[in-house]
């Protein structure tokens, strides 16, 4: 049976004095807790995890990134304020806002093929989301990280020092953004479709403002237009419908009844 994560943490701390290892609890029913490693000694710690005879985590199954953007957290604390007039002290709720700094996280799921145990989950956290995004690569320790770390670099923008071949893997080389970040904005490449709604409707309005109005009565019956056709027909007086873009005819309320 594998030792507990607390024991692993204590052994890591004993082996690497001055190193940082934090146990991150997982509140969910899965209870897969994890260890966050400090970046300065992470690679050596990973090597220890792989080679230690009791752990022998020789197999790194899954490498992935997680984006945690900056979050505004409102905390309310109760403060007793003494009444200046000499009455009983009042309890006032004070709200403090603080910005929880954002960071990127790389998560490794380690197993042992030799001893058939696991997972030990290891996390590396960057300093922030824009300039301190370098973490040590684990590719020298486990070859399986090679493509997966490239993917994290590509989609999240985490840089891995010591990675032998850090290039984009899924997006093309000229691409500049990191699509899996939470604040990624998709390129404005709307293609006309007949029933836009939700966010697509917003895009549709931006691209085809002329059709973002209901069809004139002359066009009723022709259910759907291509954008060009609809643009021509808007010369007649128009009524803006609820949905904005549709050029469809609104059926009479009694339709379908004899």
């Amino acid at each position: 049976m594998m030792e507990t994560l607390e024991q692993v943490r204590d052994r890591l701390l004993a082996r690497f004095p001055g190193g940082e290892v934090t146990l991150i609890a997982n509140p969910g029913p899965a209870a897969q807790h994890s260890l966050a490693l400090g970046l300065n000694q992470a690679a050596a710690m990973a090597l220890f995890l792989r080679d230690d005879p009791d752990l022998r985590l020789d197999y790194c199954s899954n490498v992935t990134g997680v984006d945690w953007p900056e979050k505004e957290i409102v905390e309310s604390t109760k403060v007793t304020v003494p009444d200046p007039a000499g009455g009983p002290a009042k309890v006032v709720e004070q709200k403090t806002k603080r910005i929880q700094p954002g960071y990127l996280e790389v998560v490794y799921h380690l197993y042992s093929m030799a001893l058939k145990h696991g997972p030990v989950i290891v996390r590396l956290r960057t300093g922030n989301r824009h300039d301190q995004v370098t973490v040590p690569s684990f590719t020298p320790v486990w070859r399986s990280c090679e493509f997966q770390e490239r993917e994290v670099f590509d989609l999240f923008g985490v840089k891995f020092s010591d990675h032998p071949d850090l290039r984009r893997i899924l997006m093309w080389d000229e691409f500049t953004a990191h699509p899996m970040r939470k604040d990624y904005v998709e390129p404005d490449d709307y293609e006309w479709e007949p029933t836009p709604h939700g966010t697509v409707l917003e895009k549709a309005k931006a691209h085809y403002p002329a059709t973002a109005v209901a069809a004139p009565t002359a066009a009723v019956g022709a259910a759907h237009h291509t954008p060009a056709a609809a643009a021509v027909t808007t010369a007649a007086p128009v009524v803006r419908s609820d949905t904005g873009l549709e050029t469809r005819a609104t059926p009479a309320p009694k339709e379908g009844t004899p």
Binding site: A42, A43, A44, A46, L47, P136, S137, T139, P140, V141, R143, E146, S161, D162, P164, D165, R167
Partner: peptide
């Protein structure tokens, strides 16, 4: 930086 010698280096490493 990390000083870890890769056990199985990537063959041509993108060079």
């Amino acid at each position: 930086m990390s000083g870890v010698e890769p056990m199985f280096p990537s063959p041509s490493s993108g060079a």
